[in-house]
């Protein structure tokens, strides 16, 4: 069984200094096994200014087994799949320790955004580009950040309205937006694939 007591405490801890760290974790539904983490793109990187959402699923034996994390926001990075958002990070695999927390894991992911490890790539195409044509890499990463990771200034109602105008049911639009944490692009993707 997941140690929900600990998860609750983690969430409290995290929200205490989320202003300073910019790292947020919130439950997706009410059972605490599925959560959404948010990290700001590190300053001085092509990810600066973006807000990245990460889907978190807790295994039954959490914290004695690592949480499953993957990017919900599309991101261009050698260690993150540009297709699925899967993350190649040792602490999410065999280097996990029960003493680590969701917040420390998210901090590690943020650090990974600042310092890619192209020699241990998750996405071979991106890694190749990173090594051979760094300028193009930076350009693509920045473009993806602009396109997928910028929270639009528009309010929720406007997002709803636009999606409804595209022909989706309003109730469905609202629940989908909720599920993806308000990200309009993600919501559209989900609505289209449903």
């Amino acid at each position: 069984m997941i140690d929900f007591g600990r998860v609750q405490k983690e969430l409290q801890e995290c929200s205490k200094d989320s202003q300073a760290s910019g790292i947020k974790v919130s439950p997706k539904a009410d059972n605490l096994a599925r959560l959404v983490g948010t990290i700001p793109g590190p300053i001085g990187t092509p990810y600066e200014g973006g807000t990245f959402q990460i889907d978190i699923t807790l295994p039954d034996a959490y914290p004695f087994q690592p949480p499953k994390m993957q990017f919900a926001t599309k991101v261009w990075h050698p260690n993150i799949s540009s297709q699925s958002g899967a993350i190649c990070l040792d602490i999410l695999k065999d280097q996990w320790s029960p003493a680590l927390t969701l917040k420390t894991a998210l901090l590690s992911i943020q650090a990974l955004l600042s310092a890619p490890e192209p020699d241990d790539p998750q996405d071979a195409v991106v890694a190749q580009q990173y090594l051979k044509d760094y300028q193009t890499f930076v350009g693509t990463a920045r473009y993806w950040t602009e396109t997928f990771a910028k929270t639009s200034a528009l309010g929720v109602e406007e997002k709803v309205q636009r999606l409804v105008e595209m022909g989706f049911l309003e109730s469905l639009v609202r629940s989908t937006l909720d599920a993806v944490g308000g990200d309009e692009n993600l919501a559209l993707e989900k609505l289209c694939s449903a």
């Binding site: 034996a61 004695f64 087994q65 602490i91 320790s97 029960p98 003493a99 680590l100």
Partner: peptide
């Protein structure tokens, strides 16, 4: 309780021969 849970998970994963300490990087 935490040690026990850690051991149980590791034994079930078949790692009995080398159960590491729970601390990160230990």
């Amino acid at each position: 309780d935490c040690w026990t849970e850690h051991f149980v998970v590791k034994i079930n994963e078949g790692q009995s021969k080398r159960i590491k300490c729970m601390a990160h990087k230990c």
